[in-house]
């Protein structure tokens, strides 16, 4: 299979208005991905499926990933004039990246038996604008998986014929897999609470005794 840069070049030649970037993957798996803009995603996907050399007809996995607002600190070396001399100084810049939800598609080819080609789409923000074009008209396997992303992350897919909740019940509100999901305020008795669960537990019942009769054990005596 050809390299990702070649694929990118050919896609840009075929769908001229599309804006594609390569997202590097730092891990040893070397699975880099193409980020596609939302307007032309469907055209790009159709081209990827129909191109005779690639023929990516098998969409294996559709994943939703939630990214909150992040600040990236970068340290760069800059030449600055300090006390009349030019010196190299390290400066830290902060870059604020607003949050978004992205959908990652892993594409393989059953005819040519190669892959994966990974494409990503990002929503403009995590609020009312969290919409993405649905790639279900191109790959039928996205049907249930896009419904799952809608159910668990709250991303609406335009063009999906049957977008409703799939794993949670229909009257459920809020989106469980988001990073800022707050659990409902119901609580059951838990005999071995840990860390932050202990705080919640204290509100609902009296804190458990810290000893269980262990203070009654004398060294050398047989256990009861």
């Amino acid at each position: 299979m050809e390299a990702l840069e070649q694929i990118k070049a050919r896609v840009e030649a075929a769908v001229p208005a599309a804006k594609i970037e390569i997202v590097q993957n730092a891990s040893p798996s070397q699975q880099h991905s193409l980020m596609i803009d939302n307007e032309h995603a469907r055209d790009v996907a159709k081209w990827l499926r129909d191109d005779p050399a690639l023929r990516l007809d098998f969409c294996s996995d559709v994943t939703g990933v939630d990214w909150l607002d992040r600040t990236l600190k970068k340290t760069i070396k800059v030449k600055k004039v300090v006390d009349g001399e030019e010196k190299e100084v390290t400066e830290t810049t902060e870059e604020k990246i607003p949050g978004y939800i992205e959908a990652v598609y892993h594409l393989y080819s059953m005819t040519h038996k190669h892959g994966p080609v990974i494409i990503r789409m990002r929503t403009p923000d995590r609020g009312e604008n969290s919409r993405l074009p649905s790639l279900m008209p191109i790959w039928r396997s996205a049907e249930f998986q896009e419904r799952e992303i809608f159910d668990l992350y709250g991303v609406k897919f335009d063009g999906h014929p049957d977008l409703r909740r799939i794993l949670m019940w229909d009257e459920f509100e809020d989106y469980p897999m988001r990073k800022d999901y707050r659990e409902p305020d119901d609580y059951e008795y838990e005999p071995t609470p840990h860390d932050d669960v202990v705080e919640k537990a204290k509100r609902y019942y009296a804190s458990r005794p810290q000893s269980d009769g262990a203070e009654g054990i004398v060294e050398g005596a047989k256990p009861a």
């Binding site: 071995t192 609470p193 840990h194 810290q210 054990i217 060294e219 047989k222 256990p223």
Partner: peptide
């Protein structure tokens, strides 16, 4: 023979931290 004097556990709490469903409680 003594369950208290011979107990090997030193309450290092490593098992409590690594337990996936967090079912161990140590003081």
């Amino acid at each position: 023979d003594d369950a208290h004097a011979g107990l090997r556990c030193v309450a290092c709490k490593i098992c409590e931290k690594e337990c996936p469903p967090q079912c161990i409680y140590i003081v």
